[in-house]
Design a protein around this nucleic acid. Sequence first.
DNA 1: CTGAAAGCGCTTACAG
DNA 2: CTGAAAGCGCTTACAG
Lengths: 357, 357
Amino acid sequence: MSGARDGRRATATDVAQRAGTSQSAVSRVFTPGASVSPALRERVLEAARSLDYRPNAIARTLITRRSRLVAVAMAHLTNQFYPSVLEALSNRLQAQGYQVLLFTADPHRPSDPLIEQVMRYQVDAVVLASTGLSSSLARECRRLRVPVVLFNRVADDPDTSSVTVDNEDGGHRIAAFLAAGGHRRPAFIAGIESSSTNRDRARGFAAGLRSAGLGTPACVPGHYSYEGAAEATRALLHRQDRPDAIFCANDHMAIACIDVARHEFGLSVPADLSVVGFDDVGPARWRGYDLTSFSQPLEPMVEATVRMLLALVEEPAQPVRRVVVKGELVLRGSARRPPGQGAILRPGSAPPAFPPS
Amino acid sequence: MSGARDGRRATATDVAQRAGTSQSAVSRVFTPGASVSPALRERVLEAARSLDYRPNAIARTLITRRSRLVAVAMAHLTNQFYPSVLEALSNRLQAQGYQVLLFTADPHRPSDPLIEQVMRYQVDAVVLASTGLSSSLARECRRLRVPVVLFNRVADDPDTSSVTVDNEDGGHRIAAFLAAGGHRRPAFIAGIESSSTNRDRARGFAAGLRSAGLGTPACVPGHYSYEGAAEATRALLHRQDRPDAIFCANDHMAIACIDVARHEFGLSVPADLSVVGFDDVGPARWRGYDLTSFSQPLEPMVEATVRMLLALVEEPAQPVRRVVVKGELVLRGSARRPPGQGAILRPGSAPPAFPPS
DNA sequence: CTGAAAGCGCTTACAG
DNA sequence: CTGAAAGCGCTTACAG
């Protein structure tokens, strides 16, 4: 039973009273590094225990001007990449003593008034991990001087820090891989065309094909969605010069692409059509898809994000950084391989990288 | 440019000064329903705009004892059901003027000290949507008198409110459907065996088979994970009396089951083996799986959860409620149908319900 | 090491 | 309708 008077939660003052000391002493006991004698500490802890006392983080925030709250803005949670990011980010922040204030953008209503609400909670920093709402939110953060880190996207302006995989390199290596595999008509299903990830993946892919002596790829937008990619695949496979390989700007679309190729066009993947994705999400490993994909290494990306965030909280005048993490092309069964690149993987064996190291 | 002195954010006092009024007047302008004359309101709003003033929700919380923060505890974010829940819940709470404080349990470290941190933020309520950490968290909430609603699980004790789909009914209807489809040896891949969802689905399934004159199903645990279910499927398909249908306690496992049946045993689904899942997550609709599944109607469930939550915030002495929402058996191509139940669906057509209405 | 006191940015009776 | 003042639960100089 909590011992606080009139049903309220116990405060530091209640604890002080019971321990026969001052409220400031109680505060010090719960402040790492503050000086209290062992005897007083023990008395206070005992009183705190008996009253179920928990320090009030809200009151602490008001006076320290540090909420230890980080806003994370996300959308597209049906793309498995984002839940994975959220889980890793949240675990990491919690381990560092921060809490995640989640902001999800509802496509059906304007997000600006909702963003405003989040900012009222005095968050120490913001992670922006979604295309779309970015511009308002980034602006709002700048105005209120809250540090921002973009996750999986880079800013147009030069003064916003970001963490991404090397998207251009990924696109380039996928092109090289498909060319080496003997594909002659690779095509591209684009994501949201205004996004930096899509732009960089597309650019790398086109450059890679050029280096390999192949022309500009056919390109159809798929908007990073399952339905969009299904439609795009139909368009591509109905063409006279049907592609023999499709690079989809993310795995979520690659899955739709494989489904349509197999079930609507009766094609065999990869015998009739090679499909490559991007992200290396969980479903890419499902045997039904066994998707060749470029990985986004979540742990290093999250690690870099949290580091930058915390550095910005300490020192907001931190120089802007654009961290670019190396990814890997993970070879599985959805795309024909270059000669000598081994057989299709069985689960349990480690996927080879390309180019072979 | 913000007009706050020495680089700090503008406060109500700053705004009052600029508008030539009192701090309390500023507060009233930002308090819905408080009385201010139109003229004063205009002056204050003008000053607030020019100073980029945002009311400080932290300070408000301290005095009103309402944070408008709801903690949402989740795990298993690789099971697409949970991100969908999170997105719906978060959108709904934001629309009601609440924010989501996300708590994710990291299986690699003890969660109790981390839960304690969340509770320090004076959350108005907690939604528990994950098996596992529940017992500590529920206990902590009770101790601190914070309202809790369980989502997708029921409590053992009689005094915790919850929202679930009718899991037992789902299991029962799946059994009836498989029996009507002429299956003779249905098996069950269980989820986490201590979970209420698994218990209720299993119970309904067994009862349904009994009603249909079929015996107790073979039952192997799959722990609600892809790998666990893959292993369970292997065990079932290696049996002498190989099952002709498998009901998996969630879709995430049903996908693994289909993958193993097809790719490791060369079986055709549903010709050689019918597979039914539970949840009706996004991937159930992917053509590669086309999974027959029992739906959890997210919108009504989230609606009920938020309603109960807000009622409990207003009046903590609210009677305990266990809301049970009706689900639907969504017929797709992964399970053979009873005669007269129509052909396998093509995308775009509405899935029929079972029993036919 | 310990305590009294100021103050973080608000809301809300209470007077006027 | 408006303002002065108390107070929410803490942290943190400042004295002792």
